[in-house]
Structure formats: C-alpha cells, structure tokens
Design a protein around this nucleic acid. Structure first.
Lengths: 333, 333
DNA sequence: CCTAGCTATTACATCGATGTAATGTGAGAT
DNA sequence: ATCTCACATTACATCGATGTAATAGCTAGG
C-alpha cells in the first residue's frame, strides 16, 4: 500500500496538515519540524496522490494536447516541443488524436474539462465554427495554426505571407510556371485557403497570370496522397517549372514521384515545402521550405494557456510566430 | 460551476448513489428511474469528475507512454498507434519523454504511480538494469523493444534475427562488403548490440570474414548524427558495397550524404534501414527496410498492460512481434 | 390480508490532500 | 512573574464519486 500524508504525519509525529504545509510551502513550518517531515517522506517513499489533490483544489496539473495525427512528422515535432516545455513547467501532458474529425475537435473544445484536464492545446484542421455555440463557456483553450474564426487564444504562423514569400523566392530563380500542391476543393482547412491566397498574391504582384491548371488539389496532406495527386497530375499535364507543396510531408512524397519519373530536382523542376521538418533537411535533394521556430510555438501556446488558466480571461489573444524562407538544394537556381 | 452527482440527483429526484448506479451499470436501476436520471444528466451537461472517481476507486483510467523522443518518426508512429488503441479501449494516454536518459527511465519505472497513472508503457534505450532494486514492487509496466535484462513484461521485435536476415538479403544481391551504421562503443543499447550480432552471424554463415572497419559507430540514432558519422567514415575509407543502417532515420541521413557525394544508390552502394517508417517509402530512392506491424506492437503492449493491471501478476511475459524484409529501390540488385 | 423474500433505493462513510478556524506555544513587554 | 501577540500546529470539514449496509417498496405465497 502506498504511503499517505497520514502515514508520514504519524512517522514524523505531526499532524497531516503539517505534512501538507511542508509540501506546499505556503504556510510556514519551523526548521526542525520540516526536517522531520522531509525525512519521514523520504523513508516512506511518499508520493502524493494527485487524484486526491486534484479533487481538493479543482486542479489536476494536466493539460491535453490534441493533434490530428501524432505520426505526422510535423505534429510529432510540435508535440515534442510542447511536451518538453510543459514538463519544464511542471505540467503533465495527455495526448488526444482528432484524426482531423471536426466533431472530435468540437467535443474536445467544449467538454475538455471532463478528463481531469486544466487546459487544452488544440491543433484543429477543420473546426466547424458554426457548431460552437456562442456563449458556451469554454475551458482554457489555445488553438494552434490557422483558423477561420476567432474562437479562443491562438498561436500561428502567417500562412498567407509565408506562402507569398515562398512563391516570390521560387520566382526569383527564374521559374514562372509555379504549381502548388495541396489546395482543397470544398470546405478546406484555413491553412489551405491562406496558402493558396498567398501564392496567388505573389503571382499577381509579379504580373504572372493565375493559371487554374497549376493548382493541384490534395485533400489530405500526407506523402501518400501527395504522391498520388502529383502522379495523376503529371499524367495529364506538362511539368511545371516549380512545385510549391503546402507541407514538407507532401513535398517528400512529391520528390519521390519526380525521381521515379526521371525528373531531376532542381534542374527540371524546383520543389519547396512548408514546415521545415527534420526529414526535409535530409531529403534528396534537401528541401527548400518555410521554416519557423516550433519551440517558440510551444512556449507561446503554453504561456497563453497558463495565463488563461491562472487569471480570469480577458479577451482573445493572438500570437504570430515569425517564419523564414530556407533555400536548400531542391530549389537551386 | 460544473454539475455533480448531487445536482443530477436533486434534479432527477433520487439519491446521488442512484445516479452513480446508472452510470456504472453494476447495481441494477429500474427503467423509469434510469430514464429520469439520464435526462437530468443530459440537461445539466453532467460530466463525471475523474479526480474524484480516481480517488475513490484507486484507478485513474490513465496510462503513461514514455518514449525517448516524440519527434523521432519511429517513436511518433508507435505513439500514434498506442494512443489510438488505448483510446479505443477507453484509456487516456499521458506522454513522457525520457531523452534516452537512464535515470529518467529508472524514475518512471519505479515511481510511475505518482502521476495518477494506472500503468506504464516504456520504450527504454539504456535502462541501467543494475539500478533497479530487485524486489521493489513495480507498477504495471510493459517495456517496448530490446532489453538486456528481463525486468517486466515486454513486447519486441527480434532484432538479432531481423538484422541477420537483412544482411543475408543484401548479400544475396551479390554485395560482399556490407557495412553497418549505428554500432555503439561503450554501454550501448540492447538493440545496437543485437543488431550488430545478427549482422555478424549472417556474415559468419556466409563465410564472409568479419571486418572491423565496416562497423561505423553512431551513438545517437538520428539522421544528423548518422550523416555526420557516414561523412567522416567516407573521408577515410573506401565505399562499401552495401550499408545497413540500424534505423530508417539513420538511413535517410545516409542517403542524403551519399547523394551529396555523387554516389548512386543502389548502383554504387545499396542501402537498407530498420523500422519501416513512413518516410522510408518516399525516400529517394525508396528504402529497403525491416518492416513490422507497429499496430500489433501497440495492441500487444496494451493487452499485456491491461491484463497485468487487472489481475495479479503471474511471471513476466514476453511477446515477439514478427518482421519481414521489405526490398525497395535502395537495394535493387 | 399478512408476511416472507425479493429488488430498488437510500444514508453514511470513505478515498487522500488541504483550506478554515481554532488551539497551543513561545518570546518579548511590562 | 504575568499578559500580549505572533506564529506554528492541530482538528475538522470538504472536494465528488462510490462501496457498504440498512431501508423502503414490491410481489407472490399462505
């Protein structure tokens, strides 16, 4: 049986509350008493019962991190940083996967409190804003990434500007026929929409006419789907001069397809991605991408979350994390 | 304020215990009463307080998953499957990162119970067996992967045999000078040792003399370190005919280096990995690897864990998950 | 019409930690 | 030596859900 405060108290010859006081350090405890208690705790290998503590003070010390799919390199990197930062601050992180299911995203937003959690960091894909009843008091939530509607605190990278800058960078190497991979048809993710618009804004500013046939749709942003989409596209269309993939994962799928077809990158076609995942650096050829500080995203998200958990909420805050265009071999002039 | 059983009870005109009975379904509740209670729960948007429940029955419904580094594609894939399987079974998963730190691995093994968790799935790298005091009652733990000493239930892939088979497969394409990347110097991970031995066993069985100079050490198994190790190696040594990397991640780093040096894969050198991560399929060229069913690992780990959490423990169980050699472009004859 | 023999429901205590309010202990002032 | 006053410590109640044991409500048999 595990030791409780009572056991420690008995052994130290004090009351349970004093043991508690030693642990929390709010109520002062005299030197000798504190020592006796600490020794007793050590001897009994005492570990506080977080359920009991959580019950008593209404806080569990646990935050939830909800991502579409942990196996995605991008999500994995974000999760890694959030877990690390959170642990440094003494938080326990519990993982939820949404599978990009809007309903699941919903549910997590509104029912978060159920699972012992004090707050939620959610990376939504298709959050159906209309479904969130206005006025419903949400638990402390921080959203990661682009969202069409401002529902809660948010940390994001300016996809529009980044996509625009990447398109400009590709154009600067002399390529004019720049295709994008990852546009979506129906109700797409906010990120897809913004990146497409950024791309088009760049073309407009360069005076390059928009060309519908250079938008390669790809609903799911995975290497598999990207590879398939690009293969299909190349069957029916001429090879573009450059290909801007909306994520590095898709770019990796694309590189694979291009190589199999004997197209040389960057000689025949330049390729770029978005996210700067670790594997992009080791892709063949190394991948030009939009890079940003994922640790910063993690720490900012946690800052917003803890602030909201601590104080009363005051309006909705938005933090934009900077980005940079990293040109590697895949887009060499 | 959140609704409690008391509120629901009052609204339904019954006692709190009856509400509890409705939820748990163990004690029978008559039809009409059950209906009234269910309606009251719905109206109040009642969500049970898991802290309180956890306190009362000594179970939290949470298991911890401890991995060296979530950002590693292999870890991420494993985590994904475990989270998915666990959720299907109604478990909440909390993430811990060990950073391959033996002490942290220790701590998690012995103190697991502290963090509201009912059980632990741990993927150790260098678990210093000697430090686990024999006789200390461990919480329910399942280890993933190779371990030198049998400390707890375990799910693993037979690294020795897999490495042997992969080496044989590479040899069958006519290559004799087969190097391995990922051997470790001092106290290496159990996986490193077994894979090295499997490789050597294959050479022995083929009558190929062992060649120390074909063991390329690489302590950390990441693309970065692998790339550096291989670069350094190639400065001072002739190019081997084949390169067996102990993980796909390392293989991806290796492919990048080979490409940069103008070495063609598989014409000049064949490359193989281990783990069958998603990105390997889209590597350039696609990566030959040791494949195994990660979902099976997840579900077996969870099975062992839940069985142990439920019943009394009876001895330590070991589950071996099958593997297969998947030959892709990187090792074409 | 009453009671044995059920079953559905209830009151109460409990899990472990901690806030509250009351008690105990000491030093310093007179 | 006595009385404050400050401060360390304690007893008790509490958080919310649920097991236990007792009770209320019911049907069927006599």
């Amino acid at each position: 049986m595990r030791a409780t405060v009572k056991d420690v108290a008995r052994r130290a010859g004090v009351s349970p509350k004093t043991v508690s006081n030693v642990m929390n350090g709010i109520v002062p405890v005299s030197g000798p008493t504190r020592l006796r208690v600490e020794q007793a705790m050590a001897e009994l290998d005492y570990v506080p019962n977080l359920s009991a503590r959580g019950l008593r003070n209404g806080r569990s010390g646990v935050i939830a991190l909800a991502l579409p799919d942990l196996a995605t390199p991008y999500s994995a990197e974000v999760a890694h940083h959030i877990v690390e930062v959170a642990h440094d601050q003494g938080w326990i992180v519990q993982i939820e996967e949404t599978g990009s299911d809007p309903q699941r995203e919903q549910e997590l937003m509104t029912r978060a409190r159920s699972n012992l959690i004090d707050g939620l960091i959610l990376n939504p894909v298709v959050l159906d804003e209309s479904a969130v009843k206005v006025g419903v008091t949400l638990p402390p939530v921080v959203l990661l990434g682009e969202v069409t509607q401002q529902l809660a605190d948010r940390v994001f990278v300016d996809s529009f500007s980044a996509a625009r800058d990447m398109t400009l960078a590709l154009a600067k190497t002399g390529r004019k026929r720049i295709a994008v991979l990852g546009t979506t048809q129906g109700r797409g993710s906010a990120a897809a929409i913004q990146r497409t618009q950024g791309y088009q804004a760049a073309l407009d500013s360069l005076g390059i006419p928009r060309d519908e046939s250079l938008l390669i749709p790809c609903e799911k942003w995975t290497p598999e789907t990207a590879a398939k989409a690009l293969s299909t596209y190349l069957e029916a269309n001429p090879v573009p001069e450059a290909l801007f993939c909306f994520t590095d994962s898709m770019a990796i799928g694309a590189l694979s397809v291009l190589w199999k077809r004997g197209l040389r990158v960057p000689e025949d076609i330049a390729v770029a991605g978005f996210d700067d995942i670790a594997d992009g650096r080791y892709a063949v050829p190394s991948l030009t991408t939009v890079s940003f500080d994922k640790r910063m995203i993690a720490s900012e998200a946690l800052r917003l979350l803890t602030e909201r958990m601590g104080d009363r909420a005051r309006g909705q805050r938005v933090v934009s994390v900077g980005y940079s265009i990293v040109e590697r071999d895949s887009s060499k002039a």
